[in-house]
Write a protein that binds this DNA or RNA. Structure first.
Lengths: 248, 248
DNA sequence: AAGTGGTCTAGACCACTTG
DNA sequence: AAGTGGTCTAGACCACTTT
């Protein structure tokens, strides 16, 4: 009766894990996107040959991971990586009053080059891969506050142009999703305090050697593959990095 | 048939929310502790007059919040705030190789005094409350790395002594739980880069003005009440603050 | 009115741990 | 063997949104 094979046998994955994995691969491949009508629970359960309860469990985990959203009475949707979600999930800088606001972004430089060892390692690329390097300055309340150095796989983002970056509406993660079908679903970050290098100091209007926060981030797709490496230098006189731990 | 009133009426909370709240209050009040046998699911469901599925939902949320742990075949337990959990949930500093290790702690100062406005505000205390102030230095691999200034409500931790702090085994959060019945369940942190003040520089063996990371943390109990305010100054030449975002 | 997700039930059967 | 949690089923009924 089930279209999935029996999970009780030793190494078989569980039903809800299987369902989840299939949903993830369909999101990654673009079969399911924010623009496409998502099947309702009964239809999905029928399709996978599982009960609604089991289907719900898979969906619930994807909701918890911010990949899907459900609205009672309306339906289930692939979550759009819009500005609101970006601020909520990936932008951890708040001003001293605790308010998160989307910064204005200025592209400083854009190039395509061979990956350094460090870049190749962070992104899981082979040694001779090509990468795009994007350098941005983010301003909050008119004050240059963050200096971003972004590295992405040139093959994954094939055809990306400077104009695309400059002319985009919304965040760079929306651009990844809309123009390249790559949905950023998570990120790991490592932070330390440093003295500003001359480049960052220059772009942020600081004296060289001023204390700044360095954030190194690797972003991951829904399939948990690294897709972006980023180093941010932050002038924390106006903003703070906010981290919330495990309570809703 | 149910011992909980019907949740379908307008303002009534849901069954599983009710069950969860009752479990939280029993953990906070010490009826359920790491040392007490936790009733099995069937018994709990019967006691609350709900089905096992509903009981499980409440327990699952508490497991997700790291307050309970379940082991198949063994049972459900109030999670012990031991060193392992502390490292996993609250200690975000890893060395450059990404390894988390518990530091050695040295008590530098201990006092009881009237709360400053800042302290009273952070802990939700009245203006004339008394607080304990604890100052620690944390060393990793023999290197003084973190300077902690901790403030806690003197009434909540009534009777705390310097000897208790110096003689404790395990983390200070274990002491809160074991000796005062206060289980830390979550924390919010705000980070910025600063120049070391003379006190921190002195304790960490740095030149005054060296770039350090300042972490301001408010810790919360299982009932979501603030119970500790802490400012940490971190020498990030050896360690980094690690933040993981929303993937299992 | 019809369709969606949200909550809840009352089981069955399995996997794991303990005595 | 007995007891525990883990997965899964096949519904019922409710709340909300859309048509």
């Amino acid at each position: 009766m089930n279209s999935l094979s029996n999970p009780s046998s030793a190494s078989e994955p569980l039903f809800y894990r299987k369902v989840k994995r299939i949903l993830i691969s369909e999101i990654a491949s673009g079969v399911l996107t924010p623009g496409v009508k998502f099947p309702n629970e009964k239809a999905l359960a029928l399709r996978f040959g599982v009960s609604i309860g089991t289907l719900r469990r898979a969906v619930e985990e994807l909701v918890a991971e911010n990949i899907l959203v459900r609205y009672q009475g309306r339906g289930t949707f692939v979550r759009n990586l819009d500005q609101e979600r970006f601020l909520f999930q990936f932008f951890k800088l708040a001003d001293r009053s605790g308010k998160f606001e989307y910064p204005s972004v200025t592209l400083v430089s854009f190039e395509c080059a061979a990956a350094t060892n460090e870049e190749a390692k962070a992104l899981g690329l082979s040694g001779d891969a090509k990468v795009f390097r994007i350098e941005n300055v983010l301003s909050l309340n008119g004050q240059a506050t963050v200096h971003d150095r972004i590295t992405i796989d040139a093959q994954l983002f094939d055809g990306l142009t400077r104009e695309q970056l400059e002319m985009r509406s919304g965040t760079i993660y929306e651009l990844y999703q809309r123009d390249f079908g790559i949905t950023v679903a998570g990120a790991n970050e490592r932070l330390r305090a440093e003295n500003a290098d001359s480049r960052s100091a220059d772009l942020l209007g600081l004296e060289a050697g001023t204390s700044v926060m360095r954030i190194e981030r690797v972003a991951y797709t829904v399939e948990n593959l690294p897709c972006e490496w980023r180093i941010s230098m932050v002038d924390t006189r106006q903003v703070e990095y906010v981290s919330r731990s495990s309570r809703e």
